[in-house]
Nucleic acid binder design. Structure first.
Ligand code: MN
Ligand code: MN
Ligand code: ZN
Ligand code: ZN
Lengths: 144, 144
DNA sequence: AATATCAATGATAATGGTAATCAAAGTCGA
DNA sequence: TCGACTTTGATTACCATTATCATTGATATT
């Protein structure tokens, strides 16, 4: 079982890129953060301990984490990309509360299977997918 | 069975808004266009016969069509919103080819049902959802 | 038909997330 | 240690979307 720090180092080496302090600090902070954070979220969090790290580096490193398979980019329709660590061999989709922003994760193997059937029926090769349910979480529906 | 022109007129009246030539021309052109068009697509198409209509009006009218239930806004991850006419009582989701941009529509009632079960299990009230499968269409997978 | 009121239009500027630029600094193999 | 090449961080550019505002238009009332 490879650590994600090792995964990043291997990826950088493979691509002829360089291991830098910034990249390792950003990776560590990203993994420690609550999930589904935006570039801004992470940049603000980083500034507390590492005020020298620039916004552009945070942005570029998040893209790098996606390219290396450590992170996945999500977009929940609020106009800014969000990132979360890839959970080993566990894909999930999301319920998103329009009122309070709560994000609930779910796994539903039957949906995944039906998806593949749909794709197969159209001779379509799936590379990725998004499945998001928007509405009100239980707390917010009660308050209405 | 109400025409969509009538639907728009009723909506405008209800909201104290005004029926204008621009709005009716944009509606007609939108309905005649191939589906999943961006604001730009529609604006360029309109310019041929109606060069006086401004981009801002096209943008505002598309938002109006969404608000009145005539159109639905989609976002397939290329950074620009796309619009398509709502098909009477027929929801569908999408397969999107990353290579050629082909968009295939699908309906899968079993997925819709499972979605509702997932939401119910979390006491979540669904208002809308997106389900998109990205990958290669049959033609593009053969060419690879 | 003329008028008054309020909304719509269209040219243009502002916004905001993302991505490109570039000089200075850093990495790492030779 | 040196040198080739990459990274960094400040800044600017990009681009879809949205706001602004003076002018024009729609509609109800007279
Ligand atoms: Mn998640
Ligand atoms: Mn469609
Ligand atoms: Zn909520
Ligand atoms: Zn294709």
């Amino acid at each position: 079982m490879k650590t994600r720090k090792k995964t990043l180092r291997d990826y950088l080496q493979l691509k002829g890129l360089k291991i830098t302090n910034q990249r390792e600090i950003i990776l560590k902070t990203f993994l420690d953060s609550r999930s589904h954070c935006s570039t801004d979220d992470l940049y603000i969090r980083l500034r507390k301990k590492h005020p020298k790290i620039g916004y552009a580096t945070v942005h570029r490193t998040l893209k790098l984490l996606v390219a290396s398979g450590i992170a996945i980019e999500q977009n929940f329709g609020d106009g800014q990309a969000r990132y979360e660590p890839v959970q080993d061999n566990h894909h999930h989709d999301h319920l998103i509360c329009r009122e309070c922003g709560l994000i609930i994760e779910f796994e539903e193997p039957q949906i995944e299977k039906l998806q593949h059937q749909v794709a197969a029926a159209h001779q379509f090769t799936i590379e990725s997918h998004r499945h998001e349910l928007y509405g009100l979480c239980s707390r917010c529906s009660h308050l209405k």
